[in-house]
Design a binder for these strands. Sequence first.
DNA 1: CTAGGTGCAAAAGGTTTGCGGTTAA
DNA 2: TTAACCGCAAACCTTTTGCACCTAG
Lengths: 148, 148
Amino acid sequence: MSAVKDSKPDLEVVERLDRSGFRATPQRTHVYKTLRAKRDHPTAEEVFIRAKKDMPEISMATVYNCLDALVQSNLVRLVNHDKGATRYCSNMMKHHHFYCVECGGAFDIDAPSSVHEPLIKLPTGFKADRYEIAFRGLCPDCAAKKKR
Amino acid sequence: MSAVKDSKPDLEVVERLDRSGFRATPQRTHVYKTLRAKRDHPTAEEVFIRAKKDMPEISMATVYNCLDALVQSNLVRLVNHDKGATRYCSNMMKHHHFYCVECGGAFDIDAPSSVHEPLIKLPTGFKADRYEIAFRGLCPDCAAKKKR
DNA sequence: CTAGGTGCAAAAGGTTTGCGGTTAA
DNA sequence: TTAACCGCAAACCTTTTGCACCTAG
């Protein structure tokens, strides 16, 4: 009922791509799966390297194309660190990010489902449909090292 | 109220640069003043163009160098839009940003001085010394256009 | 059949670096 | 004097684009 490389591509994904006007190609679903396989924030190149393991013929351009389609389909988010290449995140749950100023790492911070209140009142006219908090400071590891 | 080129370079700036181990060179103070002159979020190239008006011999590399020194001295912040070049912001008051998904513009959102509370509890070990909220949605102009 | 997608290679940004010359402590 | 800094140009890295071929609808 399923092949080695073509395991069922998750209806949700197919549907979302379709709703945004994209075909659910093997490359796109594979890039998505690659991203889901690990809970970190890889760069496009990192994704490319990982995706090639199971799909050696995929190209960098296609990875960019796929990531773009996935972002537009709301299956993946962009995450910008302060420097360097754009990173991608397949965790679409409401969450925030913590950036360690020491080691440069980025960590997901879950948003409490209860309190996502209009913490800040926006000036009249602005219509926000989402927000994300970027914390900066020391991650547990670096904080521990620093203390000594 | 502005001078030709060498108006006194603001003690605060000199001191901050110095405290971070940078000399307060004419280029650095000029780039800083350039950034302060307008309340937007220019790219490095934009800064370069503006800075050249009053300092024609300044180079792109120097602008990058200066911006870097200013960021490290806490006189300027990096602002990343979703796409494109890094942008810079000389508004160091506690504030957040609103990104318009329609026109791509970025707007400063003042943080109420009263409530800058730890609205989200971080997992144990994380030591945040600051945070910034990125709102996304429609700016007043685009919201108005959309309504029609 | 044909619009959309892929892979490749080349191009286009954006940022950094190496280096000779200059300047401030 | 000398370490820091400047301007220039080349290098580098990330992302986009043009194009020939391919494939699903």
